Computed example of a mutant assay.
Amino acid sequence: MISAMLFAGGSGTRMGASADVPKQFLEIEGKSIIIRTMEHFENHPLVDKIVVACKADWIDELKKQIKHFGITKVEDIVPGGANGFESIHNGVVRVAEYSKDDDIILICDGVRPMLSEELIDNCIKYTKKYETAVPVTPSIDSLLYSEDGDTCNKSYKRSSMYITQAPQGYTMKKILWAHEEAEKRGILNPVSSSELMIELGESVHLYQGERNNIKVTTPEDMHTLRSYFYYERYRTFAKEVMKYGF
């Protein structure tokens, strides 16, 4: 059993999104970002079920959109938590209710609408082999470390730095252990599941991510996303023009 667990419980403060519309519900070319993200798992032949941790007062809206766009793999929608980790936890617990230890969970933010089938393929493949699979891209920028944001006396070797992406894959046994340990040790808000694993002393297996697999976080990301889908629509139109000769 392979399940995708999407977490979309936030409101998008870094996006500067309207207080009335969380960023995952902003529309691109007639579809919300969360639906576009979900469709990649809906259409993937190896993904069996989808569980979504959603901002509680938007669950009814998400249900309407799932029905409207014909998403059939959604097993359940659970309320999100006070932060990203709590939302992930709620989703993981729900997936665990119908999963076995060696089943796979693909944990993904609900704001990655440019996922590829190959990326999901690789996540599944490496999770089966290593129990963990985290997509990364090499850092193309130099990195400096600062405690106060004003001064710096430490830098990092760029060739050793990587940017994490999603989906991140785990066996259910592995991720449930991590969440149980987090509770025991008082780890309340790790940035991601991979960082939780590392904080617990575990290693995670890295695989090659994709630079266009953007997480929609800032207004600049929205501009990039809109440009991409506008280009795709224009390219489709141009193909039709060439096909019919008008």
Rank of each mutant, 00 (worst) to 15 (best):
M1I: 02
M1V: 03
S3V: 09
S3I: 12
L6G: 08
G9W: 10
G9L: 09
G12M: 08
G12T: 14
T13N: 10
T13A: 12
M15Q: 10
A19N: 12
D20N: 09
V21P: 00
V21K: 01
K23G: 01
L26Q: 01
E27Q: 10
E27W: 04
G30S: 10
K31M: 06
S32H: 04
E39F: 05
E39C: 02
F41N: 00
P45R: 05
V52F: 03
A53G: 14
K55I: 07
A56Q: 12
A56R: 14
D57K: 08
D60M: 06
E61N: 06
K63G: 00
Q65L: 14
K67S: 11
K67Y: 07
F69E: 01
T72W: 08
K73M: 11
E75C: 07
E75G: 11
E75H: 15
D76N: 15
D76W: 07
V78S: 03
G81T: 12
G84D: 09
F85I: 04
G91P: 11
G91K: 12
V92F: 02
R94F: 03
D101L: 05
D102A: 01
I105P: 02
L106I: 11
I107V: 15
I107H: 07
G110N: 08
G110V: 10
R112E: 06
P113T: 08
L115C: 07
S116E: 05
S116I: 04
L119S: 04
L119N: 03
L119Q: 09
I120S: 04
C123R: 05
K125G: 07
K125C: 08
K125A: 14
K128H: 11
K128Q: 15
Y130F: 14
E131D: 15
E131I: 05
T132P: 07
A133H: 03
T137M: 13
D141W: 14
D141V: 14
D141L: 14
S142K: 15
L144W: 11
L144N: 10
Y145I: 14
Y145A: 13
D150V: 05
T151C: 07
K154Y: 09
R158S: 02
M161D: 06
Y162G: 03
Q165E: 09
P167C: 00
Y170T: 12
T171M: 13
M172T: 09
M172S: 01
W177T: 13
E181V: 00
E181Q: 07
A182K: 08
A182Y: 09
A182M: 10
E183N: 08
K184W: 06
I187M: 02
P190C: 05
V191C: 04
S193V: 09
E195P: 02
L196S: 01
I198H: 00
I198S: 00
E202R: 06
S203R: 13
H205S: 13
H205V: 07
H205L: 05
Y207Q: 07
Y207T: 04
Y207S: 03
G209W: 09
G209H: 09
I214P: 00
V216I: 15
T217K: 13
M222D: 10
H223Q: 08
T224W: 10
L225P: 05
R226E: 09
S227N: 15
S227C: 13
S227E: 15
F229E: 01
Y231N: 14
Y231Q: 15
R235E: 13
R235M: 13
T236C: 08
F237E: 12
Y244P: 02
